[in-house]
Design a protein around this nucleic acid. Sequence first.
DNA 1: CAGAAATACGAGTATTAACTCGCATTTGTC
DNA 2: GACAAATGCGAGTTAATACTCGTATTTCTG
Lengths: 207, 207
Amino acid sequence: MIEARKKPRQQRSQEMVERIVTAARDMLNEQEFKGLTTNAIAQKAGLSVGSLYQYFPNKEAILLELVQRWLAAFRPVSAFYAAKPRPENWTGFSRDFCAFTREIASVYAQNRALLPTLEAMQSHPELRRIAKDHDRGIIETHAAWFRNADPQLPADIASRLGMLVLETGNICFTIALMRDDTVYDAIIDDVIIMNEALLRAHLRLPE
Amino acid sequence: MIEARKKPRQQRSQEMVERIVTAARDMLNEQEFKGLTTNAIAQKAGLSVGSLYQYFPNKEAILLELVQRWLAAFRPVSAFYAAKPRPENWTGFSRDFCAFTREIASVYAQNRALLPTLEAMQSHPELRRIAKDHDRGIIETHAAWFRNADPQLPADIASRLGMLVLETGNICFTIALMRDDTVYDAIIDDVIIMNEALLRAHLRLPE
DNA sequence: CAGAAATACGAGTATTAACTCGCATTTGTC
DNA sequence: GACAAATGCGAGTTAATACTCGTATTTCTG
């Protein structure tokens, strides 16, 4: 069980937490997840294991903090587009969706350093569950957005579309980040092509 | 380092190997990867740890066997479609691609039991490398197929398309397998919509 | 059937890494 | 400066588990 960490009472504590999290993140970028030991994190952060355990009840809690930072970066983007007024026609929706996809892509780019964390996360059932719950939320936001655009769209199809948009985006942008910028940009365009085709096949909007 | 396993000289040995592999596969389907210990596999397979280590030099080798069985299931499908003569027009290509996608989807369905293996694989650098090498091969096969259809298609774009088709298919079918049959079928259709749109945007073929 | 080769066994070993705990040091308060 | 509270320390404990090795059993060969 991943408990919440102890609340720090002095200011230096917050810095410690930050140093621990940063050290863990950097280590995941440098080496294998397997080498991410609590002792190593403490050493890299320039403190002792004992101190580390004052802020995090266990190793998973450190990963949890990283994962939540990653997940939190996406929420506002989805929420913003889902809250926009209904577009009048396909062109309007398409413009929004295109902008949305590019914003999501840029969130990936900005959080590049957290990417190995996602991989590490897969090894932990608890963290997987948290990510899955988060995804469910995003999917429902997407679904609501699509149903706002086309009120005729059945809820189950809207959910499926939300899921496919989320998952294909996730995998494509993850891969894209490992390539050079030219390919990265091309992949964004490709994702837009794919997802727009998918949505156009299901959403009925005037041209 | 994952060495090749010792070659069995008696017939019962092959059965042992099969029992070990099956036990490991079943365990991954039942519980967390974390609980997959060599002792537990041996017990489930009805033999001793000592015997297990006679056929597999280490734990990773067991996973490797599972992973290779998974990967091997896909090769013939790609190879078959890539070797077909050039389609005359988009309709011909589209028909092939649609059939191809459905066959790939059915390979996923048939190898459902190996799915948790892929997840477990992510924890092992060596196995990840093997899968990545395999993927590269598939991607090149796809790329060759697309360039056969449209010889004008630049090699780098062909590779990118191959990669996107592979990766989006992989993630979508993996998710699809966790849903009921209705959703599964719908997702296959959706993947076809997405990938055809992508290819149509880049391949120049007469209608 | 006898001897050898292959295989099966599983208690024991070695390693690794998460986590503790008693003591040292720093910080806050008067 | 004196006391207490909070924080920092890291050698040591503990648990888990991959893998070994000396011995028992089975199979093969003549």
